[in-house]
Nucleic acid binder design. Sequence first.
DNA 1: TTAAACTTTCAATAATTATTGAAAATAAAA
DNA 2: TTTTATTTTCAATAATTATTGAAAGTTTAA
Lengths: 167, 167
Amino acid sequence: MKLDSAKLKYIHTWGSLATSWGINKTMAQVHALLLVSTKPLSAEDIMETLQISRGNVNMNVRALIDWGIVNKEFVVGERKEFFVADKDIWELFKQITKERKKREIEPVLKVLEELQQVDDNSEDAQQFKQVLGDLSKVTNTVNNILDKAIKADEHWLLSNFTKAIKK
Amino acid sequence: MKLDSAKLKYIHTWGSLATSWGINKTMAQVHALLLVSTKPLSAEDIMETLQISRGNVNMNVRALIDWGIVNKEFVVGERKEFFVADKDIWELFKQITKERKKREIEPVLKVLEELQQVDDNSEDAQQFKQVLGDLSKVTNTVNNILDKAIKADEHWLLSNFTKAIKK
DNA sequence: TTAAACTTTCAATAATTATTGAAAATAAAA
DNA sequence: TTTTATTTTCAATAATTATTGAAAGTTTAA
C-alpha cells in the first residue's frame, strides 16, 4: 500500500471507530490527521485534506485542544495558527482516559450516591438500594483503576499489572 | 425521594449517560428498568413504563440478550415472554467489557496491523509506522488488561491491583 | 387443521446530531 | 486610525440514528 493511501485509510478508520465510542467522527479524523502529519497544519490544510468546512475545523480543533491532546503552534513568518498533535501515544491514552473519567464516570457516581437517599424501607426499596450500592462499588473500582493508570508509567503499569494478575 | 421516582430518575439518568458512550438510550433504559425490577417484565410492561413502541422494545430487548446481560424467563400460566436482567453487577461489568472489547478494540488492532504493511522507507513512512506501532502497543496493553479483568474475580482483582499499583 | 396470542420485521417518519457558510468578532499590518 | 487577514459563532440545513406501527411471521391452543 502507498503511504498516502495508508494514512487516509488510517484517518477514516479512526473516524468510524470513534463513532461507536460516542466521539464525533470529524474530531477523531482531525486528530488522526495531525497525529500522522510530520509538520504543523493550518485550518486550510485540514479543510482541504478532510474536505470539510472552516467552521467544522474550528469547532473540532478547539474540542481537541480542550481535551488536551492537540496544541497550537506558531510558524515563523506565518500569521495564521497551526496545530500539532502530541505524538506520545501513552500520554494520549492517559489524557483521553482522564477526560472521559471526568465527563462520564464521575457524574455517574454522583447520581448513584444521590439516589441512595430513598426514604423507604420496603423490601423493594432494599433491593433497589442494593443494586445502586453494587453499581457504585463496581464504578468506584473502575474509577480507582483508571486513576492509577492515569498516574502510572506505561511499562511500569503493564509489568506490575501482569505480575499481580497472572496465576 | 419516593422509591418510584428514584427508580425513574435512575432509569432516565442511565439512558442519557449511555448516549455519551455510544449506546442506544432506550437500550440502556430497558436494561435499567429490568435491573431495578423485582419481577420479570413482559414487552407490554416495558412499553407502558417507558412509553415506547412494541417494535422498539423488541429490538432493544434482543440487543440486550445478544450482549448477554438480559435473559428470557418463563412465567407459569403465561404464554408471552418475560425478561429479567442479571442482578450481579460485576458480572454485568464483565459482560459489557467483553462485548465492547470484541466490537471495538479487536477490530482496531486488526486495522493497525494491516496498515503496518506500507512498502515505503521514506522518513515520513518511518514516522507513520512509529505512530502505528505505538498505537498498537497501547491498544494491546489495554486489551490485555481487559482480558484479565474479564476473567478475574472482583475482590481478588481489586485487592491485587491495588497492591501492585500502590507505591 | 384454524384461530388466537404473541413476536418480528422494516419502510416510513421523527428526533437527534453534525456540518455548512456567511456574517460578526478579533487581531495584526499598513 | 483603516485595511486586511484570520478566527469564531450560530442559524439553517444536511446527515445520521432511533422509533413507530402495521403487516408478516411464528407459535400455541382449541
